[in-house]
Amino acid sequence: MKRMIKPSIPEHSDDPRVTIALTVNGETVSRTVSVRMLLSDFLRHELGLTGTHVGCEHGVCGCCTVHIDGKAGRSCLTLAVQANGADIRTIESVANGDGTLHPVQQAFKECHALQCGFCTPGMVMNIVNRFEEPGPLDLTDNGIRDMLSGNLCRCTGYINIIAAVRRAAELMGRA
């Protein structure tokens, strides 16, 4: 039979490679990577942390949001080499080791704030970080919409996500 399917992935790459060392979810990791590897691909393909989702790869959808040195940021708009020496936190670190959900995750569950769930890791990482920032939170509808404005959801229509952020504030004593 004629072979129709033929992989075209090159077996080796001539990309310049750099060895990077960084902390991911508290663990020190070191890898030698292509200079053009995005942090999102590094987390997913090099480390197998596939909870960080890749949607648009140009910074619009927010699905790939992780914490970079304690601040929420787009892992698709960060090169892995830029994260050399950085402290990265992904969705895999948010729930407790025993499986107990983080209050933001608990609130998303209670309020039915996810349907397909593709955008959820980015939403959670963004909101968790906003709750970690000092200073008052604007928990009006407009304030929460502003907090969520960098994350797209194509299922829910956002209403339950807004409710979940408010519920998370209650659970965390920030309401």
Binding site: G59, G62, T65, I68, K71, A72, G73, R74, L77, T78, N126, N129, R130, M147, S149, G150
Partner: peptide, 9 residues
């Protein structure tokens, strides 16, 4: 200016 996660970086 964009959104907070963009402004963070």
């Amino acid at each position: 200016v964009a959104h907070v996660p963009i402004r963070n970086r």
